[in-house]
Design a protein around this nucleic acid. Sequence first.
DNA 1: TATATTTCGTGTTGATCAGACACTTATATG
DNA 2: CATATAAGTGTCTGATCAACACGAAATATA
Lengths: 220, 220
Amino acid sequence: MNDHDRIAVAVDVVICMLQNEALTVLLIKRSDQDRWAIPGGIIGVGESLQSAAVRILEEETGMADVYVEQLYTFGEPDRDQRKRVVSVVYYALIPAQQIELKAGSGTDGAAWFNVDELPRLAFDHNEILDYALTRIRNKLEYTDVGFQLLPEEFTLTELQTAYEIVLGEHLDKRNFRRKILQANILHETGGMRTGEGRPAKLYRYRDGAFVEVKARRLFP
Amino acid sequence: MNDHDRIAVAVDVVICMLQNEALTVLLIKRSDQDRWAIPGGIIGVGESLQSAAVRILEEETGMADVYVEQLYTFGEPDRDQRKRVVSVVYYALIPAQQIELKAGSGTDGAAWFNVDELPRLAFDHNEILDYALTRIRNKLEYTDVGFQLLPEEFTLTELQTAYEIVLGEHLDKRNFRRKILQANILHETGGMRTGEGRPAKLYRYRDGAFVEVKARRLFP
DNA sequence: TATATTTCGTGTTGATCAGACACTTATATG
DNA sequence: CATATAAGTGTCTGATCAACACGAAATATA
């Protein structure tokens, strides 16, 4: 087997954030490609897969301390015409906020796309995003991923809206609040969010709460 | 980066089967290693990850047409002292039966181990097996993986026993039967299994049934 | 061949949970 | 001060889950 035949290992990261009442994903355009793509890179020697994902995330967004989880590994022989690449794909959920995008090296630019209005992407990246969204929607129902999309403090309405955006369906206000509060995974910070209308209590996620709640589905 | 630094891509396969009222996993011992290990191999050029998993499974057991699914990719830099290996791990569930183990090339032998009585394995393979078992137990509750561990025709008691072995807990007979039958994923073959005691009806899994049942948990 | 043993197969009840549904309260704004 | 906006709150009904015991059908044995 000559060097040309060797298989390259890449790490790609699906970076998701809530913006303008929509779930968005960060895509980049490389100088040598005419389609948008999921950001990624070659793994460094001595670097773990997870570290590589965190590094790529940091290079694109400048953010650290973010929820990152392995999604799936894509390795069809023909997924990249140029050479054989096995991509270990991670996904990251970052709290809603304003982010200054850093143009990574070798890229023409980066932009956030509404996940419901994606263009045709490079390689098998549309397939990867489909898979990522399915995973996130599923995990929303029985893990704490929903909280990762919000800042530390949030109102129950903001939390419900986040769930509605990701799931793409309306949820009943009273049932939602009852279930979340009964699950005992939030605590009131004491602060209030003011604005037009009645002020709302602020909550914070009880970190590690899902270790206790575990197998219990939030929305069965 | 010289060739020595390059990263190798391996595919490992956790092969599980029911035997003697226990869930067992197939392990091999390589001539150059003193510990048992999960069977695996280097991926061929032009071979997809899934194909490699199926090939490895066939090499070890002689079986084709088996349930195979990707589990997780393990790639810590120090997981193999000799060189950097990224392992894409699959798991396979094969129907209970007698299997003639083929000694794969370069192996000292292969054997089935009860998953509750595993020795200390090579590399990070204990960790991988823990992860695989957790996944299988979870999927048992909301997918059709349970049926993959049984032959085509089975009695309800055999199915319940399979669930009990994998989950490691006792299930109520009447509740189990009611839930399985109401889920409408089995049909009676008309045949009966005879033996000591009253004969039992034989059932067959309605293939593709979980496409319909989908999100519905069998054991919430 | 009668009896014992083994395994299959079956329903009900009470408790818990999910889903549908509408009005009052607190603040900001004009 | 009146109006608009969003927050916050409870009940009832139907569905689902968990707990629970015995009769039926066959084989094995005395």
